[in-house]
């Protein structure tokens, strides 16, 4: 456990040692704000909910999460430090989880820093705070799911840009396969059960549950598997690189 935390600490410090962390936080907060107020028309809705805020998260994360995670393993490969790290007396799993946790914690910090909007909506009206808490949890899981995919794509290549693009494409697929404008087009073309199955494996359908204020065990299991599988794939890729 201690070695996982050592890895996590180093990775987190890595974010804050460079301007990356601050640039990211500012862009994330600006974007969530802009989408909520300008496009989501938070004020004009005249509703005491944060729907206009959370509905954009799958789209904002689509670019920002891969940007945070793209260096996780590709940087180790480029610098050659992977050889150093993997000849230390710690298991590969500790490294993978430690690195993943660092990025996830960083994204969680970004999410926590959106608290003024929570205060705003409570000041302006009387929202259902349990729904807001559930939505925050959903957003937390969503970030983890994208991040885990980015961890996998960053193990593929020593080039961060390729890692970023691959990750965006895979995450975009997970978004679109359950997004009504896409499923409506596909629905007449394929058997109903296939469409339903694919839609059920979309992050959209599952994050919707949280945004409606429900913490459904199926959605939780969905996110845990979407986090777990790519992390497992990361370990397979790294083992494959060394064989």
């Amino acid at each position: 456990m201690k070695s996982i935390w050592t890895i996590t600490k180093r990775e987190l410090a890595g974010y804050f040692n460079s301007p990356v962390a601050y640039v990211f936080l500012v862009i994330f907060l600006l974007m969530t704000g802009a989408f909520t107020f300008l496009i989501g028309q938070f004020m004009d809705r005249n509703q005491a909910t944060l729907q206009a805020f959370f509905m954009w998260h799958p789209w904002i994360y689509l670019f920002l999460v891969p940007a945070v995670g793209m260096r996780l393993w590709s940087e180790e490969r480029r610098l050659g430090t992977m050889e150093l790290l993997l000849t230390m007396p710690i298991s590969l799993w500790h490294c993978i989880i430690g690195k993943f946790l660092a990025s996830w914690l960083f994204l969680t910090l970004a999410l926590v820093m959106t608290f003024p909007i929570w205060i705003t909506v409570n000041y302006l009206g009387d929202p259902d705070n349990t729904v807001i808490v559930a939505s925050y949890i959903g957003s937390f899981f969503l970030a983890g799911a994208y991040l885990s995919i980015t961890s996998m794509t960053s193990a593929f290549t020593r080039n961060q840009v390729i890692s970023f693009i691959l990750s965006v494409v895979i995450c975009l697929f997970l978004v679109l396969c359950g997004w009504p404008p896409v499923t409506d087009v596909v629905e007449p073309l394929a058997p109903r059960w296939i469409v339903e199955f694919v839609a059920a494996s979309s992050v959209m359908t599952n994050v919707e549950q949280f945004n409606n204020g429900q913490i459904d065990s199926r959605a939780v299991i969905y996110f845990l598997s979407v986090i777990g599988f790519p992390l497992f794939a990361t370990s397979v890729i790294i083992r494959g690189l060394r064989a």
Binding site: R10, G14, N17, S18, L79, T81, E83, L84, T87
Partner: peptide, 14 residues
């Protein structure tokens, strides 16, 4: 073991 890999890779941000 202590190991010094070829060309001594290091974390450059530390």
């Amino acid at each position: 073991m202590g190991y010094l890999p070829e060309s001594a890779p290091l974390y450059t941000d530390m």
